[in-house]
Structure formats: C-alpha cells, structure tokens
C-alpha cells in the first residue's frame, strides 16, 4: 500500500476485508473488489444499479434523482422497516470516469439543518481484473469522526460494501 506524508493516520477498526482509517477530519474506507473498474463505476453511477446495493442490509434505496455531471444533483431515499425514511442528497463536484468522482453527501437533521460534506470515491484498476475502491469522507474534525464511529456505522458500511460485492459478482 502506498504511504503518504500525512502525520496522523489512525486505524479506526479495520476488518479483514476493509481498511478503515482517519487522517485529520477525513475518514477513509478502502477495499479491493474482484471486478473490473468499468463495472464498479457503473455500480456507482447508474440508478438501477445503485438501488440494488446502496445502504446496509435491511434497508432499500430509491434513487430519486442522479444527474451524474459536474453541478448535477443526486437524491436517494433510504427505507427501513423500523424507522422513518431518510433522504440523502448532494451535488456532483468532480467527475473523472471511471477513476474518480466527488460529491457532497448531505442529510438534514431536525433542529440543526443540513449535515455532511464532500466525499470522494476513487476506483483504482489493479490490472488483474480487480479494483480498489477508496472512499474519503470529509467529516470536518477528528471529534466528528469519533462520534460517527460511535454510532456503529462501521458495521453498516461494511454490509453496504458486502452488498456491492454481491452485485458486482452478478456482472
């Protein structure tokens, strides 16, 4: 794995499949998938594919809109039996198919307002039919990352990527 000059890379509970670490206010998830990069790109950028894997197990996702171009907006609705629907939304800030895109990942919190920040997904072609996905979420501060991790999000995030893996295996 390449190393960076960043002073403080802190492991945040990596699992056998997924590296999870933080650098300052950025939370990073990294995992290698046995699928070509073009297929991974489509899983992230085509609405009918996104709806088949996005979100933890036990949830379903409706893609309300996704206009995959710089300045375009996206909106997903996440359903689960035991809670109200949650809307996630944002704007595509940068797109470089099939290698990388950056969007804002936002949701509204009652009494607080919109929360979230920029999130970059990179898709690295490993040259052997596999692709390494790296998701970098800008949470703003290490303290915000502490809070986010305390919600048990790692389990949900890994389930989400397990579902992605299953979709990619279907081709």
């Amino acid at each position: 794995m390449e190393t960076t000059m960043a002073a403080t890379r802190i492991d945040r509970g990596s699992t056998p499949t997924t590296a999870i670490y933080s650098e300052g206010g950025e939370l990073v998830f990294e995992r290698t998938f046995a699928a070509p990069r073009e297929l991974v790109w489509r899983a992230f950028t085509e609405a009918d594919r996104v709806s088949r894997w996005w979100g933890p197990r036990g949830t379903t996702t409706t893609v309300v809109e996704m206009d995959v171009r710089v300045g375009g907006t996206w909106r997903y609705l996440s359903h689960a039996a035991d809670r109200e629907d949650v809307t996630f939304y944002g704007e595509y800030l940068a797109i470089d198919p099939p290698a990388e895109f950056t969007w804002t990942f936002m949701f509204d919190v009652e009494g607080v307002g919109p929360m979230g920040g920029p999130e970059t997904h990179t898709f690295e072609d490993l040259g052997d039919g596999r692709t390494r996905i790296r998701t970098i979420s800008n949470m703003g501060s290490p303290e915000a990352i502490d809070g986010a991790l305390a919600t048990g999000m790692v389990k949900g995030a890994i389930e989400t990527w397990d579902r992605l893996e299953e979709l990619l295996a279907e081709g």
Binding site: S78, T151, G152
Partner: peptide, 10 residues
C-alpha cells in the same frame, strides 16, 4: 448522531 445511527442500522 442519532440520524447517522439510524441510517447505518447501528
């Protein structure tokens, strides 16, 4: 954080 927890089924 509670919103976050809900989404991730934490």
């Amino acid at each position: 954080l509670d919103r976050y927890r809900q989404h991730w089924e934490g």
